[in-house]
Design a protein around this nucleic acid. Structure first.
Lengths: 106, 106
DNA sequence: TTATAACAGTCAATATTTGGTCTATTTAGT
DNA sequence: ACTAAATAGACCAAATATTGACTGTTATAA
């Protein structure tokens, strides 16, 4: 499934959610203070993340969003290591490729 | 929690996921065929939906996305009513406000 | 059946994102 | 401690999204 296909599918599902609540694109647009065109575009698989979030909130899906991208927290070891540091970065050996993509979580 | 705050939080969690896999913004950018700037912006809570989806795929979160926005399917009654129709719309009485927002699912 | 609301599609102007490049800061490997 | 990699931040030009207005199509209430 291509990225474009997924975007389109997201749009379809958002429309389905809206219709389940029997709401109009126009009404939804007004509720989120966005234009009707933006809603159309969103349901057609285009748009900004901010638009998506606004609509999700209005449709009452924010809790699901939190489940979807749960706050992973920080592993204790990294937390300990973070003392006084302002940033975190990916680590790796100097010469070679940065890493092999295996996640160890610590 | 404001929309902007949620966007920022999404960015933070995406960064956390990336770091758990010990990957570089640069490496991630190359993996999804996007610019480093786009990844920076995304982790800062800005960007397009297409960018978000590409990164989610690369981080292996597409299944979670499917759970988050599950295909609601169509209720049998609506399916029956949809015979030969090309579109679906929100319904409502002619004169008054379109609807009260209660979802009946059928 | 008919009138009209809901929706699709387009256009021009504006706003935001993206890509590319550069500089500065900070973290981690040695 | 030194040094290089990872990241932040700003800049510009190009691409894309948003808005508002308009026209055409389709489904539903009456």
């Amino acid at each position: 499934m291509t990225d474009t296909a997924i975007e389109a599918e997201v749009g379809r599902r958002l429309r389905e959610l809206r219709l389940r609540q029997n709401r109009t694109q126009q009404a939804l647009a007004e509720a989120v203070t966005l234009s009707l065109n933006s809603i159309k575009a969103l349901e057609n698989g285009k748009g900004k993340i901010s638009t998506l979030i606004a609509v999700l909130r209005e449709l009452g899906m924010l809790q699901e969003l939190d489940q979807f991208l749960p706050d992973p927290g920080i592993s204790p070891l990294q937390l300990a290591r973070q003392q006084g540091k302002k940033r975190r970065r990916a680590t790796g050996s100097r010469g070679g490729e940065p890493n092999d993509g295996q996640d160890s979580a610590w």
